[in-house]
C-alpha cells in the first residue's frame, strides 16, 4: 500500500507552487505524474480592482477534505494538495491551488480536474467583486456551467 499525502489549507497568505510540489513529492519514487492547477484573479478587462473571498471557517476545510478523499479513492492518487485563499485578492494574484500526484498522467489530470470541479460547486467560498473605481460591487453569481462540469463526473 502506497503512502498517500493529503494536504488541505485555507489561508489568507499567498502560496508558492514549487514549494508545494516539493512538499508533495519529496523522497517519493512512486510518483510518475504531477498535475497542478492554479486559479488567479482576473481584472475583467480593467473593470475589477479586487476580489474579496469569504469562506465558512471549518466547513471550508472539511468540505475540501471530503472532495479530496473522493478524488484519491476514485483515481488512486498518491497525493493531493489543495490550498484556497481568503480575503482580498488583487488581479494577478493566486486564489486556489490544486496538485494531484499519481503513478501515471491520466489519473493525475483527472484527479486535479475532479477536485476543482467539486471545489467550485461544493466548497463554501464566495467571491465579491470590487470595481475599478473603488466601488464595492456584487457577489459573483454561481454559473450553470460549473454545475455541468461537476455533473460530468457522476
Amino acid at each position: 500500500m502506497s503512502k498517500i499525502t493529503l494536504t488541505i489549507r485555507v489561508q489568507a497568505q499567498d502560496f508558492d507552487l514549487q514549494s508545494e510540489i516539493d512538499a508533495l513529492t519529496a523522497g517519493r519514487k512512486d510518483i510518475g505524474a504531477v498535475v497542478t492547477f492554479t486559479g488567479l484573479c482576473r481584472d475583467e478587462q480593467g473593470a475589477l480592482s479586487a476580489l474579496e473571498l469569504e469562506h465558512y471557517p471549518g466547513m471550508a476545510e472539511a468540505e475540501m477534505r471530503r472532495i479530496a478523499e473522493l478524488a484519491i479513492e476514485r483515481f488512486s492518487l498518491l497525493g493531493l494538495t489543495a490550498v484556497h485563499r481568503h480575503g482580498k485578492i488583487l488581479p494577478g494574484g493566486n486564489i486556489v491551488l490544486v496538485i494531484a500526484a499519481a503513478p501515471h498522467r491520466q489519473a493525475a489530470f483527472d484527479g486535479a480536474s475532479f477536485m476543482m470541479d467539486f471545489l467550485k460547486t461544493s466548497a463554501p467560498f464566495w467571491k465579491k467583486e470590487h470595481g475599478a473605481g473603488g466601488t464595492t460591487g456584487d457577489w459573483v453569481a454561481a454559473k450553470d456551467a460549473d454545475d455541468k462540469a461537476r455533473d460530468k463526473w457522476r
Partner: peptide, 10 residues
C-alpha cells in the same frame, strides 16, 4: 446551521 448562497469559490 449554516445558511448561504450557492458557492462561487475556486
Amino acid at each position: 446551521i449554516g445558511i448561504f448562497p450557492p458557492m462561487t469559490g475556486g
